[in-house]
Design a protein around this nucleic acid. Structure first.
Lengths: 196, 196
DNA sequence: GTTGTATTAGAGTGATCGTTCTATTATTAA
DNA sequence: TTAATAATAGAACGATCACTCTAATACAAC
């Protein structure tokens, strides 16, 4: 019976995600956010409570689409090594299709010094490290199937590849070109075997 | 003939560097900065012009001590490969001795969305990529001396190792432990040869 | 229609932002 | 001493901050 929402949550959050990626937590003002989303301040506060709540919802929206969905799809692959390589390819494609160098909301927010809540900070951390869990799982799968030697430690290798992903996302925020990102990814992935 | 300064530039900037590392550009308020440095707002503005000027001076102070001085010293080493390994060791030692996880001012600022000037942003970029220049030079030296094979491309390898440094500094900002950083560094450095 | 309810726009809240002004202080050259 | 000069402290500036209040609005159930 109530008046219907003019904008869906998805539309609103997709806009706020862009603002937070561009300006960071402290740098994104409520004016920026209302202008970008098209929602008035009152509406934003009714829906999300406060700026921190909007940020948390934005992080979840970003991670659901950019990470969880992607990882769930890639986990279906028959070949775990191919899944890892595909993941790196997609990360680079993301960076390639980012003309304004917004970078990754999670990586940007990791380093962000703004006064976000401890809850928001923990969320950023945990959503980002879904990637490490995925990598660990695929490496363990590959080891079990014999595609990777027993001598490889899944935890250590996943840590290493996660670090490589972090660096790719940092470089995407600045001026790195796709060929450079591909070279770096190939070098990092060579730790998994010589057929790169 | 003028009244002498109560605090030296070095003292002031060492304090402002800490604030900017902790809070970022947008997150560091003038109140934070005056409290940390012990200088009144008027004094800060007389010396550095505005917040952006103070930030630029802070970045230069940080990079002079943390990067330029370090690289100049390591460039004196007889063995370029050892110089590179030593550089990674020192980066990890820095991260180890960072109980509040301030991280690297340059890397943090790279991703910072705050409204710093284009000049400040360019400065951060150029000071950080002194590292890549150093790595490239050492790799070229090692190749010339036969310590590295001709097949290694100095530019690509320097890009790769710089990416590894970026990831180490990102991890230092969060919760990475020294052994993890050492494992990641060793894996990255293994690209230079098998004696890691 | 009427009623009930969530949504909305827009003005308004005190607090804090970066910045500047005023007046005072501390020092040295003359 | 005195004059000249830069540094200082602290109050004050308008602007903007995150946030809230008030009223009007738009819809569904009845």
């Amino acid at each position: 019976m109530p008046r219907p929402r003019r904008l869906t949550d998805e539309d609103v959050l997709d806009c706020s995600v862009e603002v937070f990626r561009q300006r960071g937590y402290a740098g994104a003002s409520l004016r920026d956010l209302t202008q970008a989303t098209g929602l008035s301040a009152a509406s934003l506060y009714n829906r999300y409570g406060d700026k921190d709540g909007l940020f948390i919802s934005s992080v979840n929206r970003y991670a659901d689409l950019g990470i969880s969905e992607r990882l769930a799809r890639l986990e279906q692959a028959a070949d775990p090594i191919a899944a890892i390589r595909q993941f790196f390819d997609e990360i680079i494609a993301l960076s390639d299709d980012d003309p304004h160098h917004l970078g990754c909301l999670l990586v940007n927010s990791l380093l962000d010094g703004g006064a976000m809540s401890a809850q928001a900070r923990a969320l950023v951390h945990s959503r980002l490290f879904e990637v490490q869990g995925f990598l660990e799982e695929q490496i363990a799968r590959a080891r079990k199937s014999g595609a990777l030697p027993e001598s490889i430690n899944p935890v250590a290798m996943a840590e290493y590849l996660t670090a490589a992903v972090l660096s790719l996302r940092v470089l995407a925020r600045i001026d790195a070109n796709p060929p450079q990102l591909r070279r770096i990814a190939a070098q990092a992935l060579s730790a998994l075997g010589s057929w790169n």
